[in-house]
Design a protein around this nucleic acid. Sequence first.
DNA 1: GCCGATTTGTCCGTATGTATC
DNA 2: CGATACATACGGACAAATCGG
Lengths: 240, 240
Amino acid sequence: MPKEKYTSIYKDLKAKIESSEYEFQELLPSENSLILTYGCSRNTVRRAIQALVADGYVQTQQGKGVRNIFQPAIQASFTIGSIESFKESALRNHQSPKTKVLCFTELTADKKVSSRTGFPAGSELYYLQRLHYLDGKALILNHNYFLKSIAQGLTPKIAEQSIYAYLEQVLHVAIVTSKRTMTVEKMTEIDGKYLDLGDCNCLAVVSSQTYNGDGVMFEYTQSRHRPDYFCFRDNATRHP
Amino acid sequence: MPKEKYTSIYKDLKAKIESSEYEFQELLPSENSLILTYGCSRNTVRRAIQALVADGYVQTQQGKGVRNIFQPAIQASFTIGSIESFKESALRNHQSPKTKVLCFTELTADKKVSSRTGFPAGSELYYLQRLHYLDGKALILNHNYFLKSIAQGLTPKIAEQSIYAYLEQVLHVAIVTSKRTMTVEKMTEIDGKYLDLGDCNCLAVVSSQTYNGDGVMFEYTQSRHRPDYFCFRDNATRHP
DNA sequence: GCCGATTTGTCCGTATGTATC
DNA sequence: CGATACATACGGACAAATCGG
């Protein structure tokens, strides 16, 4: 049983673009012909196309058509605009991930933690430090804070595998929105202890607040990335 | 004369959210009531709401409603997902921008330039180095490559003001899509010469390829940011 | 636990405007 | 000018999730 119609059309077109069924700069079939090939309404194909625009795969132009602007050259390690667990992105890039849990505790948010994470003071939290390896190299040092009431039953064992898989598949937490900021920070002692930074004294830091389907922020994570293996990608559009 | 209907609804709701007319975590009026207040169809209000979702302002939940999750706390210097010129983002943050043109030349892309920028070898280009100041501090060192055929008549004088304003308002170039990657790189000699990096030996690098309305990539830019003034923000959504 | 009201999600069909060729 | 293509907008139908009685 497939998903919704517009999703399957989106995936089909995406696959065709990725497999170079449409050439770079070539126009895709018009909306009207897509309506015929997929047997659906115009709104539905337009919705699929808009998703491709958001991905930076195609560009639309009124009166002309939909142009393929996908270039497979650049393969970003971490794609912006969608939420992915470390394990998922590693597997997507055909790399073997490993995670080591350095620290697993529970704590109550005081003012300091509250202002850093955005959790209300007094929140009961799990706090973890995790080290992520890719192909044997230590690349990311993660500081995770999870709301205990939502990530119930989290264990170091689970944290070594995939926390997101546990949240979604076991606890049925709907993961919806994540607000992220990306900065560059001076390395700390603990960074240097676990990550091989070479002669760099800075690293890339991604801080994220993640919300569940009820609008509750249940996760704050700070990911500290070894700079030479860090690449963020996004597609922006202009609306003046 | 206003814009399209859904844009004006989007802007109106956005303004109300930003001015705390709806509280954090509060549900917005239902789609049906918005239909009445704005006198439009359901599709139109839904489109406005989807734009707010993309901005990370609200979250929708089937059967419940649309929840305000906007928190004014974090004001990012550079917002992801939209294309902004340096001048625009500076003015948005109420800061006084200044730009100094270090270098302005024309060149023909050889293989090396081609592989770095993505322009085909043989392309006729403008090449610029520009230094951007904010409130008197040198924050960003920009390397710009523009396709001569599209950015016709570019001068150092214009580059000191806003290139985007020239492209859009004078040449009527439609700026549509930009593919960006964010990395952290070791500083170079020229970085150290112009940017005050303190004791950091790295900086944040944003590389972007920008396309016009005809699907032609007309700009490649590498922006090298002083790390302590660099902040990128984005809102991600999960679609497993 | 069931039922009905409310609310958002998906999908369809149609009409009109606007840009391109 | 007409044909084609995408953009905007409207209206309606049914499904799915939520909530209260």
